[in-house]
Amino acid sequence: MRVTDQMIFERAATSAGSARARAQKASQEVSSGMRVQHPWDAPAAAGQLVRSQLNQARMTTIASTASQAMDELDAADTALDGVQNAVIRARELAMQLASGTYNAQDRANAAQEVDGLFKQSVALLNSDVGGRFIFGGRADGAPPFDPVGAYSGDSGIRQVETAPGVTTQASVQADVAVKGVGGGVDVLQTLASLRTALQVNDVPGIQASLTGLSTGVTQLSTARTQAGNGSSLLQLASNVARIAVLQEQTQASHLGDADILDATSRLAMAQRVLEATLTASATTFKGTLLDHLR
């Protein structure tokens, strides 16, 4: 086959261009640390990367939401603990002042303490986290208990996503735990009744409040247990979601990140090929009869 000068020059240009492109690609891979820079670098991996990134975002949101809900449940547990302690103290006072050894003045003094416990309980039950009144159900934009203990919240239960498509209860139902809806006692009303009985020196009334107070303690204890369980579940969900995010990141890294050792090796080889191509081209350019007929 005849090899013309144009063929030699065009072959040199094509070979050098191709070698330079390979060196450039390897160089980009090494400098960016990414194997998949464009969808056409690895189409299947690029598609998986997109799904992985979306999964990461979803799981990050789940972890964050579960963590926030856990904070609210922990705050609810703390508040219920305070209310429970107040009711236990009120029960102690009731048991103590139901006996005949105390007089009306003693009971009036105790009524003041119970009034303080009542107000303290109302304040605790109006706790908010980030502006959300955690005992209001879905009516969480305003304090759910008024100064006399009337409830303006609702029976809504906050649901939080703990895994894609899976939700769990993430709030305490104050209408059940405090107001006794569904067969319990109205804790605040019981405290108010005790306070009134103490104020008017009504010993039978004081004795009558004991049962309600005991039921209230149990009721609050049950609510605290539910809050604790919910918090644990949310903690677990948050941890699992964070692990899932790490797994997605690892998978994305496997799919899209460059193997630096491999990429560096390919860069060195591409540079060597480029140098060899340029040297070979330069040598070919010299090898004509013109160089020998002078």
């Binding site: 056409w40 189409p43 690029a46 598609g47 998986q48 997109v50 799904r51």
Partner: peptide, 27 residues
């Protein structure tokens, strides 16, 4: 996000398929 769209895939899978398809066609 997880519900099936008109192509029978969810949004995430649709986006992934779109990127893969474009990459394959370009390649």
């Amino acid at each position: 996000e997880s519900a099936s769209l008109s192509n029978g895939r969810n949004a995430s899978a649709t986006l992934g398929a779109l990127v893969s398809g474009y990459g394959s066609e370009t390649r």
